[in-house]
Design a protein around this nucleic acid. Structure first.
Length: 814
DNA sequence: GGGTTGCCCGTTTTT
DNA sequence: CGGGCAACCC
C-alpha cells in the first residue's frame, strides 16, 4: 500500500542482477496512438538526455507512464533497469497504477517511487557502507528540531535568541545542496549565531549517527556520499539504471540533481519532465536553475515542449499565460487550448468584496449555485495563499451545510497522540531508540521527571549506551528505579509479542497496557475523545501492514496530502497543496497586496519572491477546467485587526479580454451588481483617518517588517494606504448609499434560499447543557458524537464524515 | 512533578 | 484574534 514497500517487493535485492531471459519480443504498442505528436516524440525519443517542458494540463503523467510502458514493450529495458522518481507518494502511486494498466505485473518491478523512498531503499541495501546500522529510523521534523534544540542548549546557545528552527533550516538547506558538514567553507557558513551553524551541523549529524537515525535530507545526502566514497557501488547502479525518468523536475534540489547526474552518467538516458512556470518550492531548497540549465549541463539534450492543454478553456489559459508572461527568465512556452469546447468557456470572473468574511460568504453562495447547476462539490475548490485563510470559508461551509474538506492544517501523523503511539511502536521494535523512549517514558505519567531523565542521559552519554540500557546503570531513586524497571520489562514483553501478534491488535494491547489509552479516557479535556478516535483510526491503518517496522517506515514518509478524496465534498486548500490537481471550478480569493503576493515573500526575496508568487497564481489559475473566480477584499481582518488592502498587482496583469470584471469601474473599486456588501461591521473605519500614516503598512505589526528595521528606503512597491488610492478612506457603504442594491441571492437558482443540502431546516434546536459525548444527528453529515464545544459551535465527530465543526442549531439529538 | 497564566508571534511545507 | 510555549507557582 505504500510506495516504499511496493518498491521493495519482487525486485532483485542487488542491483547487479542482469536479465537472464531474453527481452520480450517486440509487440504492437497500441497506446502510442492516443498521444499527440509531441507527446509521442517524448515517448519515442528514448536515447540521450531529454527535457520535456510540460505545461499545466498537457498530459505529463501520461507521457511518463507511456514512456515506461514503451521501454518495456520494446524490450529496451527490463523493469528494474528503469528508475522513475516523483516528489509525492500520491504521484508515485498514481503513476504506478496507470503503469500497471499498461504494462501489467512488470510495472511492479520498475524502480518507481519518491526520491526519498528510493533513498531509503539504497541506504537499506548498503546501510553498513553508509555508516548506518540496519533498521535505522527516519526522523520527522519534530524529532529533528528537538535534537537540535538539545544540542544547542547543551552548548550554551540561548535558544531564545537563536531559534533552533532557523538552525535546522540552515542545515537542511546545506543538505539540499548536497553539502556534508565538512563541505561547508567559511564563505558558505552564515554569521548567524556567531558562525556556529557549521559546528552544529556536525554535532547534529554526530547525534543522528548515535541515534542510528537519518532525517529527510539524509535520504538524499547519504546516498550521495555513499556514491562518492564507493565508486564500486555507484557503478552498480549506473549500470543498472538504463533509463531514468523524473517528474516535477523544476522542484528538484541540488542534491537530487547531483544524484540524477551521477546515476545517469553511464547510459545518459535521463528524461526530466517539468514546468519552470510551476516552480513554487524554492523556499524549500528547490532549484529552478536545474531545469533552466538542463541544456547547459547536457548539451546533447533534446527539448520537447508540450503546449497543448487538454484541461482548461481558452479564457483561463489566456489569463494564465498573460499573467506568467510578466516573469523573466522563463524557458518560454505558451499553452494552447486543445479541448474541443475550449473556446466556449466563460471569462475568468473578477470580484471585489467589502471584507474577507463577505468574500467567503459569496464564494460559498457561488458554490451552491454551481452545485445546483450540476457541478459536483468535489469538482470545486477554494485555493488560498495562506492556510489561515481557510477559516472563514470553513465557517461558511458549515453554515451552509456543505460537505467540505480542508487540506493542510493538522496532519494525522503529526498529531500528538499518533506520534506517541508511533513512538511506543518504535521503542518496542528498537529499545535503543532514545527519541521514542524519551517521548513515551512518562506518557502516561509514571513519575519520571526531568531529574530522572537527566540522570539517565548522563549515564547514557558516559557509557555510550541508550537511555533504555542506562536504566540498569544509572543512579536512581528506588521508586523511580522500580518504575523504570517495570517499564523496560514491559517494553521487552511487548517486543516478544511482535513475533506472535499482528500489528493492529498489538498496538491496541500496548496502548491499553501502557496506560496510554486509559490516560485519555480519564482525561476530561475536550480533545480527549477525538484523540481516542484517532488512535482507533491508527489501528485501522495498521491492519494494512504485516509488520510494525513496515508501518513505521511508512508513517515516517507519509503526509496527509496522500489522503484521497472520494466523497463529494468541496475542498479548501492552499495553492501549494493544489499543484498537480484539477477542478471544474476554482475559486481564488484573497488577491490582495501583502497577502498575495505575500508581503514576506517580497520582503525576504524581493523580485525573485514576487516571481514565485506569480507562478503560484499561475498554478492556481491553471487548476481550473471550466471556470475560475478571482476575488479580493477591500478590508480584511489580520491578526485580529481590520486592515484595508489594495487589490493584488496580479489583477492588473490579467488581460481584459479574458476577464469578466465585476470589480472595477474606471480603475476604481466598486461592487459588482450581485456583490453588494451587507453592512457586517464598521470597525475598519477606525483604521482610516489620521492614524493611517505611512508607517501603517498593512499586514503584521508595521515595525516588525524587515525593510523597516533595516532600510527605510527599501520599501515595498506598494504602500497600503496611500491617500491617492481609491481604497484610501474607502467608505463602507451605508444602507442609503446610492450604490446600494438589495442583495440578490442566487437569482438563477431555484427559489429556496439554500439549495443544498435538500432540507437544512433544523427540526429542533439542539441545546442541552452538557453536550460533549452526546450522540447527535446532522442533515448532511448524519450521526456523530459531540467532541468539543466552543461557544455556539460544536465539534462533532461524525461516523462517516469525521471531525467537523457545526453550529448547534443544525443538530438534533440522536 | 504538574498545572496555569501570560506573553509572543503569525506564509507556503510534496518527503 | 488565537495557538504554542515558557516562566511561574503550587
Amino acid at each position: 500500500m505504500t510506495d516504499f514497500f511496493d518498491l521493495s517487493d519482487d525486485t532483485p535485492t542487488t542491483p547487479i542482477q542482469q536479465p537472464t531471459t531474453p527481452p520480450p519480443a517486440q509487440q504492437p504498442i497500441p497506446f502510442l496512438d492516443d498521444l499527440n505528436p509531441e507527446q509521442r516524440q517524448a515517448v519515442e525519443h528514448t536515447e540521450g538526455p531529454l527535457l520535456v517542458l510540460s505545461g499545466a494540463g498537457t498530459g505529463k503523467t501520461r507521457v511518463l507512464t507511456t514512456r515506461i510502458a514503451y521501454l518495456l514493450a520494446t524490450g529496451k529495458a527490463r523493469p528494474w533497469q528503469i528508475l522513475a522518481v516523483t516528489f509525492t507518494n500520491k504521484a508515485s502511486r498514481e503513476m504506478k497504477e496507470r503503469l500497471e494498466k499498461m504494462a501489467g505485473l512488470a510495472a511492479r518491478s520498475v524502480w518507481l517511487g519518491t526520491f526519498h523512498a528510493i533513498g531509503i531503499r539504497i541506504l537499506t541495501r548498503w546501510a553498513a557502507d553508509a555508516g548506518l546500522k540496519p533498521n535505522f529510523i527516519v526522523l520527522n521534523s519534530d524529532d529533528q528540531e528537538r535534537v537540535l534544540k538539545q544540542l544547542m542548549t547543551q552548548n550554551g546557545v540561548d535558544i531564545k535568541k537563536y531559534d533552533p528552527g532557523v538552525m535546522l533550516d540552515i542545515i537542511q538547506r546545506w543538505k539540499d545542496r548536497g553539502l556534508a558538514p565538512t563541505d561547508i567553507t567559511p564563505a558558505e557558513n552564515t554569521p548567524w549565531c556567531d558562525g556556529r551553524a557549521q559546528g552544529f551541523y556536525q554535532l547534529y549529524q554526530n547525534r543522528l549517527h548515535e541515534l542510528n537515525a537519518v532525517d529527510f535530507g539524509d535520504l538524499l545526502l547519504l546516498p550521495l556520499l555513499l556514491f562518492k566514497n564507493r565508486p564500486d557501488i555507484l557503478d552498480l547502479y549506473q549500470n543498472q539504471f538504463r533509463y531514468i525518468l523524473v517528474d516535477e523536475y523544476q522542484d528538484t534540489n541540488v542534491a537530487q540533481y547531483l544524484l540524477l547526474r551521477l546515476l545517469a552518467k553511464k547510459h545518459h538516458n535521463l528524461c526530466c519532465v517539468g514546468d519552470d512556470d510551476q516552480s513554487i518550492y524554492s523556499w524549500r531548497g528547490a532549484e529552478v536553475e536545474n531545469i533552466l540549465k538542463f541544456q547547459d549541463v547536457y548539451p546533447d539534450a533534446c527539448v520537447i515542449r508540450l503546449e497543448r492543454n487538454y484541461r482548461s478553456t481558452a479564457h483561463i489559459l489566456g489569463a494564465a499565460a498573460a499573467l506568467i508572461a510578466h516573469n523573466t527568465g522563463r524557458l518560454g512556452k505558451t499553452l494552447k487550448a486543445a479541448k474541443s469546447d475550449a473556446a466556449d468557456g466563460e471569462r475568468v470572473a473578477l470580484n471585489a468584496y467589502a471584507n474577507g468574511f463577505y468574500e467567503a460568504q459569496k464564494v460559498i453562495e457561488k458554490i451552491e449555485v454551481e452545485h445546483t447547476r450540476g457541478t459536483p462539490l468535489s469538482q470545486m475548490a477554494v485555493l488560498v495563499r495562506a492556510s489561515v485563510q481557510t477559516r472563514p470559508f470553513e465557517d461558511e461551509l458549515i453554515r451552509a451545510g456543505i460537505p467540505y474538506k480542508i487540506i493542510g492544517g493538522f496532519k494525522f501523523y503529526e498529531r500528538e497522540e499518533i506520534r506517541d503511539a508511533v513512538a511506543y511502536l518504535r521503542l518496542i521494535l528498537n529499545q535503543n531508540d532514545d527519541l521514542a523512549f524519551a517521548r513515551v517514558v512518562n506518557k502516561p505519567r509514571r513519575g519520571i521527571g526531568d531529574s530522572a531523565m537527566a540522570a539517565l542521559s548522563a549515564t547514557a552519554r558516559e557509557h555510550k549506551i541508550s537511555l533504555f540500557e542506562a536504566v540498569t546503570w544509572a543512579e536512581l531513586r528506588p521508586s523511580v528505579r522500580k518504575t523504570l524497571n517495570a517499564f523496560t520489562a514491559q517494553v521487552k514483553a511487548w517486543h516478544d509479542l511482535t513475533e506472535t501478534i499482528d500489528p493492529a491488535p498489538l498496538v491496541q494491547q500496548v496502548l491499553e497496557e501502557s496506560g496510554y489509552l486509559p490516560m485519555w479516557r480519564t482525561d476530561k479535556s475536550p480533545e480527549a475523545e477525538g484523540r481516542i478516535e484517532n488512535l482507533k483510526e491508527l489501528s485501522n491503518v495498521l491492519k494494512e501492514f504485516e509488520t510494525i517496522s513496515a508501518f513505521i517506515e511508512y508513517a515516517a514518509l507519509v503526509t496527509d496530502a496522500d489522503a484521497t478524496a472520494t466523497d463529494d465534498q468541496v475542498v479548501v486548500m492552499t495553492l501549494h497543496a493544489a499543484k498537480g490537481l484539477e477542478f471544474d471550478i476554482v475559486f481564488l480569493p484573497g488577491w490582495e497586496e501583502g497577502l498575495f503576493p505575500h508581503q514576506k515573500a517580497l520582503d525576504e526575496v524581493g523580485e525573485a519572491g514576487l516571481e514565485e508568487e506569480r507562478r503560484l497564481a499561475y498554478v492556481g489559475l491553471t487548476r481550473a477546467r471550466q471556470k475560475a473566480f478571482i476575488s479580493f477584499a477591500e478590508n480584511r481582518r489580520v491578526y485580529g485587526q481590520y486592515q484595508n488592502a489594495l487589490p493584488s498587482r496580479f489583477i492588473a496583469e490579467l488581460p481584459a479580454e479574458h476577464i469578466a470584471d465585476h470589480s472595477t469601474l474606471n480603475n476604481h473599486c466598486r461592487f459588482g451588481a450581485d456583490d453588494i456588501a451587507p453592512l457586517m461591521w464598521h470597525s475598519s473605519q477606525s483604521r482610516t483617518g489620521s492614524d493611517s500614516s505611512a508607517s501603517d503598512t498593512g499586514w503584521g505589526r508595521g515595525s516588525d517588517t524587515f525593510w523597516q528595521k533595516n532600510d527605510p528606503t527599501d520599501r515595498p512597491v506598494f504602500d497600503y494606504q496611500r491617500k491617492s488610492d481609491p481604497f484610501y478612506h474607502h467608505p463602507i457603504r451605508t444602507q442609503d448609499s446610492p450604490y446600494r442594491h438589495t442583495p440578490r441571492r442566487n437569482d438563477d437558482a431555484p427559489s429556496s434560499t439554500r439549495t443544498y443540502p435538500p432540507q437544512l431546516t433544523p427540526k429542533q434546536t439542539y441545546n442541552p447543557t452538557r453536550r460533549i459525548g452526546k450522540r447527535v444527528f446532522h442533515d448532511t453529515f448524519g450521526f456523530g458524537t459531540v467532541v468539543r464545544e466552543e461557544g455556539h459551535r460544536l465539534e462533532v465527530h461524525f461516523d462517516t464524515y469525521g471531525l467537523k465543526k457545526v453550529l448547534a442549531e443544525y443538530l438534533t439529538e440522536a
